[in-house]
Nucleic acid binder design. Structure first.
Length: 426
DNA sequence: TCTGGGGTCCTAGGACCC
DNA sequence: TCTGGGGTCCTAGGACCC
């Protein structure tokens, strides 16, 4: 007999801000925000910052006024720190159920099927308290028969003080109440576009969405919509994914800290992005058969000349070798780079990924692939233990004057001894 | 001065084939 | 007037997620 499904969504509250607070407890109770790469947008806000009206995704410079007036503490993103804290949270969750799906850096679904129904709220409270105690990170937990309902529950749990961070929608009457108080735009899978369309048709709450006719929603939103509505009714359509399948494409792109106007700098940046992408490629034991390079000027500067172009290369032999990939990427960059433009951003995309062990060899291949493979293995292991750019290709440049801004980055407290020693000394 | 980055899935439409 | 029809594969673009 198979158990009826029961999911818990564990969601870290204001995750990046919470990570910073673990190492800066005096920030507790104060407004704090964390910025995206290049210090561009606000991507995490403490409750106090939310209360000031600072919006998610808002450009930093637009919020600068409010921030300065209210003494909001600002952090650049520190993904090394957040990634490590995230691992600690998930390791803690794994103590409570063998089946954990890591959904994002700050969210996980747990399989609670078979756990005693009457006690799941108490169990959730234990999970929440343990994560807080072991990692310092506060979480909200939503429990329900489907992932979509668990997301709804988690959302309500986060904003309703009464439930103390854990809400179980399998308790009679709770599902309807939660769906009534959830705006349709807050349902998992309903983005800005669909929100506008649904609200235009008079569907404003998650409850109303759950009550629409199957045929109608099929026409409006396709099969995706039908699944979503079924999930809201308690019919499970999205099972837990316990192992992530290998990625089908790997991208690395960054905005520049200042405009790039020379081919040399552009090629350095592209080489640096290729190196990062190739490392990811090797981590999942894949090789890439196709490479795309793109570059763009600042789309917000309407008065400056615009150039936005990409070029693709079919690689003669699928590879994970950084040097080889840099070679093709540089050629591609040369093809589209134009003098007289101020480039804002560039990126590299690796696609047509396949398992490294199955890669086809080419009779006329001029590279000694055994040797380059050893070189890559050595490079990766040196960088893994001594820091990510200890060994690098010369093409990436050393000064990297184009690299992104991160003026307010905290030290990587948990992973970088050198930085920690600097903090102690200062 | 200043506007993130990295993914996934689905659909529609064209090419191609028999 | 009327132009076969249906399957499969691929790609571009749209929508979404955090």
């Amino acid at each position: 007999m198979s158990l009826s499904p029961l999911f818990a969504l564990v969601d870290c509250n204001n995750f990046y801000v919470s990570c910073e607070r673990v190492f800066n407890p005096q920030l507790e109770g104060k407004p704090v925000v964390a910025l995206s790469n290049n210090d561009g947008c606000i991507v995490a806000r403490s409750n106090e910052a939310k209360a000031l009206g600072i919006k998610m995704g808002e450009p930093f410079f637009k919020a600068r006024d409010v921030i300065e007036r209210n003494g909001v503490v600002v952090f650049s993103s520190n993904y090394t720190l957040y990634g490590d804290m995230s691992r600690r949270v998930f390791a803690t969750l794994a103590r409570f159920t063998p089946e954990v799906e890591i959904y994002s850096i700050d969210e996980a679904f747990l399989n609670l099927a078979g756990f005693e129904k009457d006690n799941v709220t108490a169990y959730g409270q234990r999970i929440r308290a343990t994560v807080k105690q072991w990692t310092g990170i506060p979480v909200s937990i939503g429990i329900a028969e489907t992932k979509t309902l668990a997301k709804v529950a988690g959302h309500v749990a986060k904003y309703s003080a009464k439930v103390e961070g854990v809400l179980d929608l399998t308790i009679p009457g709770y599902r309807k109440k939660a769906l009534t108080m959830t705006h349709v735009g807050d349902v998992w899978g309903i983005g800005r576009r669909l929100t506008r369309r649904l609200v235009g048709k008079g569907i404003k709450t998650a409850l109303q969405l759950s009550e629409v006719d199957d045929g109608w929603i099929r026409k409006q939103m396709g099969i995706v919509g039908v699944r979503m509505v079924h999930e809201l009714r308690g019919i499970c359509c999205f099972p837990l994914k316990l192992s992530a399948p290998p990625k089908k494409g790997i991208t690395c792109s960054r905005s520049f800290g200042r405009p790039v106007t020379t081919l040399n700098e552009m090629k350095e940046a592209v080489a640096a992005y290729v190196s990062r992408a190739a490392l990811e490629l090797r981590k999942q034991n894949s090789v890439a058969g196709h490479l795309t390079v793109y570059m763009m000027t600042n789309r917000f500067k309407v008065k400056e000349p615009l150039h936005n172009e990409e070029v693709s290369v079919k690689l003669p032999v699928a590879t994970d070798n950084t040097g080889e990939l840099i070679h093709y990427a540089s050629g591609a960059a040369e093809k589209i780079f134009k003098v007289g433009y101020k480039y804002k951003k560039a990126g590299v995309i690796l696609t047509e990924l396949s398992p490294a062990c199955q890669s086809q060899t080419d009779m006329f291949d001029s590279l000694d692939r055994n040797r380059t493979e050893k070189l890559m293995t050595t490079l990766d292991s040196v960088n893994a233990c001594m820091g990510s750019r200890t060994l690098q290709f010369a093409a990436q440049g050393t000064a990297q004057p184009w690299s992104m801004r991160c003026e307010k980055r905290s030290p990587s407290y948990t992973t970088n001894w050198n930085e920690l020693l600097e903090v102690k000394a200062s």
